[in-house]
Design a protein around this nucleic acid. Structure first.
Length: 607
RNA sequence: GCGGGUGUAGCUCAGUUGGUUAGAGCGCCGCCCUGUCACGGCGGAGGCCGCGAGUUCGAGUCUCGUCACUCGCGCCA
C-alpha cells in the first residue's frame, strides 16, 4: 500500500465498499459526539467522511487533532447506514472506518475559518494566503485560471501560433507607464526595466520572420492600483505578419469567444456571448461617454447643445458654458417620470459627488415638460428636445453641461449611475446573463494637451497612422487616426492592439510630430528602428488581459480573487514582506545611495 | 498627490442623546454526548475600543491630528 494514499478524497463510492484504502488530506470539519467522531477529510478533489467508533484506541488521539491538520487515515470503506447517507455529497453514500491514523502536519489555531466563508477581511486573507487558498472558492478560481490559460494555449497553438518567452530584464522606455527598475551590478548607475509589455520584442520577432507569435506574458507597470489594475499582470499577447486590422480581429475573436463559451457558466449562470458591431472611438465617446462602454446598459447619450443655445431657452447655467465653447449632453431614460422625487435627488447628489453642480433633468408628462428646470424650456424647444432624444410621454431626460471632454466623460458615468438606480425589472435595466463584446476602432493618433497646447501620442506610439506618411504630412495631427483598437466587454477594457508602424521613415515623422526628435528615437528605440531597415514585414497584433477575463468569468469584483499570490492595494505583499529593506552590502554592490524623502516637520515642532 | 468609506475579542460585527462592570455569532479551552454532516448541551478564557492629543465631572461615542486597509480621482500609450 502506498505510503500516503490509495485514492483521493473524491474517489470513493459504493464500488469500493469492503476495500481497505488509505487517504491523506486536511481535516475540514470535525463532529465529535463523544463516543463517535466524524471527520470530513479534504483534498483539492473533494471530501470524504471518516469515522472513529467507540472503543477505538484512536478516539482520544483524533479528538485532539485541530481542524486543518493534515492526516493520513487507513481503513475499510463502508456503506453508510440507510438514513445517514448524504445525497448532497458526491461521496455521501460511504465513509471510511479509521483503523490507523498518522498526523502528517498538526495545525495551530487558525486566524480565520477555512471550511466556511467567515467573512474574513482581505488584509488577513492575504497575510495567510496559503490558508485562504485552501478555501473552496479560491480552489475553484485558481482551477479556472489554470483551465482558461490552458484553453488559450491550445487555441493559439491550434491556429499555428508559436509560443515565445521574452526577456524580463530589459530596457526602460521613455513614454507610457512608469517602469519597475532593477539596478545593474555589473554596470554601476545603469538600470534594467521590467517589461510593461513585450511590445518591441514581439515586433522584432515579426522582423525575424516568425509570422505568428504569442505568449502568456507577464507585464509590470509602476502606477497606482485599482480593483482591476495591479503592478504585475498577465496578457495573452499576440502578433502577426502580413495582416490587416480585420485579419487580427478574425483571428483572435474566435479564441476569446471560444474561451468565454467554454467557461461562461462557471458561476452557475449561463451567459450568452455576443460580439457587437465595431464602434468608432469618437462615436463611443459621444454615445456612451467612454472608450470602454458597458453595452449591457441600453441608455445612450445625445448632444442637445443646439436646444439650450436657442434664444427662447433661458437657462443661464448652461448658456454661459455654451458661450465658452461648452456642450450639453443628454441621456433619455424611458418610463421614469413616475419615479419618486428621491430617485432624481439621489442622482443629483451623485453628480455633485463627482464634482458637477448637479444633474438637471426634465420629465415629459402629458405632452408637456415637468420638473425643476422645465420652466426654462418653452414648448417649441421641448418639442425639439423630444425629437433629438426620441422622448416619449413618461420619459425623463438628464443633462450634463461642460466642455466637450469632461461633459462626455461625466455623461458616461451618469449613464451607468442612472442605469444602476433604476428599479429591478425596469425596461432599461442593465441586461444580465450576457458577455457583450465590441471592438472600439479608429482611435486618434494624437491628442493636444488642453493647457500646454502640445501634441502627444494619444495611445500606442508604434501604431501605423491610417493614411500613412501622407496623413502625417498633410493633416492636422488631431485629424490623424491610427490603426489602433481595443476590445471591451461589459465595461472592461480587455484588449488593446494595433497594426504597427513598420516603416522607419514614417516612425521618425510620427515621433517628430509628438515632439521627439530623431536622437531620442534612436536612443530609446534604436534596436527596433534599426530592425526596420533590414526588411520588416507589415504586422500587427494585440494583447488580452488574462486576469480581467478570469475576473469576468468568475464574476469577481477585483483581480486579487483570481491570483494565487498577490499584493495588496498599496502593492505590498504582507505574507512575503515585499518590498523590504536590503542590506548596506547589497546597496554598496550596486553603487546606490538612498536619498529618502524628508520626514514632514510639524509647524509647532519647528517653532 | 487628492477625495469617500472602514478601523471595537483570533474572525465577522452590534454598541442609543457622551453616563455603572463594552456585548453577540463563529473560533478557542474544559466537561458532557454513539450517527453527525454548519452536530448538539453546559461552563470558561479572551479587549491599548488603530495610535496620539484635545473638549468634558465623565469619551468606544464629540473635535483635531496621525496610521493602516479599501474604493475612486489623478496616473495607467
Amino acid at each position: 500500500m502506498h505510503q500516503y494514499r490509495t485514492h483521493t478524497c473524491a474517489d470513493l463510492s459504493k464500488d469500493h465498499i469492503g476495500q481497505t484504502v488509505k487517504l491523506s488530506g486536511w481535516i475540514s470539519r470535525k463532529r465529535d459526539h463523544g463516543g463517535v467522531v466524524f471527520i470530513d477529510l479534504r483534498d483539492t478533489y473533494g471530501l470524504t467522511q471518516c469515522v472513529v467508533d467507540e472503543g477505538s484506541p484512536l478516539l482520544a488521539e483524533i479528538e485532539k487533532c485541530r481542524v486543518e491538520s493534515v492526516i493520513t487515515v487507513t481503513g475499510e470503506v463502508r456503506e453508510r447506514p440507510g438514513e445517514t447517507q448524504n445525497k448532497n455529497m458526491p461521496t455521501g453514500d460511504i465513509e471510511l472506518y479509521i483503523a490507523q491514523m498518522d498526523v502528517q502536519g498538526a495545525a495551530e489555531v487558525l486566524p480565520f475559518q477555512v471550511a466556511e466563508d467567515d467573512g474574513a477581511g482581505e488584509e488577513i486573507r492575504l497575510k495567510y494566503r496559503y490558508l485562504d487558498l485552501r478555501r473552496e472558492k479560491m480552489q475553484k478560481n485558481i482551477r479556472l485560471r489554470n483551465d482558461v490559460i490552458f484553453s488559450m494555449r491550445e487555441r493559439m497553438h491550434g491556429k499555428g501560433f508559436q509560443e515565445f518567452q521574452t526577456p524580463i530584464l530589459t530596457a526602460s522606455s521613455p513614454e507610457g507607464a512608469r517602469d519597475y527598475l532593477v539596478p545593474s551590478r555589473l554596470h554601476p548607475g545603469k538600470f534594467y526595466a521590467l517589461p510593461q509589455a513585450p511590445q518591441q520584442f514581439k515586433q522584432m520577432l515579426m522582423v525575424s520572420g516568425f509570422d505568428k507569435y504569442f505568449q502568456i506574458a507577464p507585464c509590470f507597470r509602476d502606477e497606482d492600483g485599482r480593483a482591476d489594475r495591479l503592478a504585475e499582470f498577465y496578457q495573452l499577447d499576440l502578433e502577426m505578419s502580413f495582416v490587416t486590422q480585420e485579419d487580427v480581429f478574425n483571428t483572435v475573436q474566435p479564441v476569446i469567444e471560444g474561451v468565454f463559451e467554454q467557461f461562461n457558466d462557471f458561476t452557475g449562470t449561463t451567459h450568452k456571448i455576443e460580439w457587437m458591431p465595431h464602434i468608432r472611438y469618437e462615436d463611443a465617446m459621444m454615445k456612451y461617454g467612454s472608450d470602454k462602454p458597458d453595452l449591457r446598459n441600453p441608455l445612450e447619450i445625445v448632444d442637445v447643445t443646439e436646444v439650450f443655445a436657442r434664444d427662447d431657452v433661458e437657462f443661464k447655467a448652461f448658456k454661459g458654458t455654451i458661450e465658452k465653447g461648452g456642450v450639453v449632453r443628454a441621456i433619455r431614460v424611458p418610463k421614469v417620470a413616475d419615479q419618486p422625487r428621491s430617485f432624481f435627488d439621489k442622482l443629483n447628489s451623485w453628480a455633485q459627488g463627482e464634482g458637477a453642480p448637479g444633474l438637471g433633468y426634465v420629465k415629459l408628462e402629458n405632452g408637456a415638460g415637468a420638473g425643476p428646470i422645465a420652466k426654462f424650456i418653452p414648448e417649441a424647444a421641448m418639442a425639439e428636445l423630444a425629437k433629438i432624444a426620441g422622448l416619449e410621454d413618461g420619459d425623463a431626460i438628464f443633462f450634463i453641461c461642460n466642455k466637450e471632454l469632461p461633459a462626455a466623460k461625466l455623461a458616461g458615468l451618469a449613464r451607468d449611475a442612472i442605469c444602476n438606480a433604476l428599479p429591478e425589472g425596469h425596461e432599461a435595466s442593465r441586461e444580465k446573463g450576457v458577455f457583450r463584446f465590441c471592438w472600439i476602432i479608429d482611435f486618434p493618433m494624437y491628442e493636444r494637451d488642453e493647457f500646454t497646447g502640445e501634441v502627444d501620442f494619444s495611445h500606442n506610439p508604434f501604431s501605423m497612422p491610417q493614411g500613412g506618411m501622407d496623413d502625417l504630412e498633410n493633416k492636422d495631427p488631431e485629424q490623424v487616426y491610427a490603426w489602433q483598437y481595443d476590445a471591451v466587454c461589459n465595461g472592461f477594457e480587455l484588449c488593446s492592439g494595433a497594426i504597427r508602424n513598420h516603416k522607419a521613415e514614417i516612425m521618425e515623422k510620427a515621433f517628430s510630430i509628438a515632439g521627439y526628435d530623431k536622437e531620442v528615437l534612436e536612443d530609446k528605440f534604436g534596436g527596433m528602428l534599426n530592425a526596420f531597415q533590414y526588411g520588416a514585414p507589415p504586422h500587427g497584433g494585440c494583447a488580452f488581459g488574462v486576469d480581467r477575463i478570469i475576473m469576468l468569468l468568475a464574476n469577481e469584483p477585483n483581480l486579487r480573487e483570481v491570483y494565487a499570490f498577490v499584493m495588496n492595494g498599496q502593492y505590498e505583499d504582507q505574507m512575503m514582506s515585499a518590498p523590504n529593506d536590503i542590506t548596506p552590502e547589497q546597496l554598496k554592490d550596486l553603487h546606490i545611495k538612498l536619498d529618502m524623502p524628508k520626514a514632514k516637520v510639524k509647524i509647532e515642532d519647528a517653532a
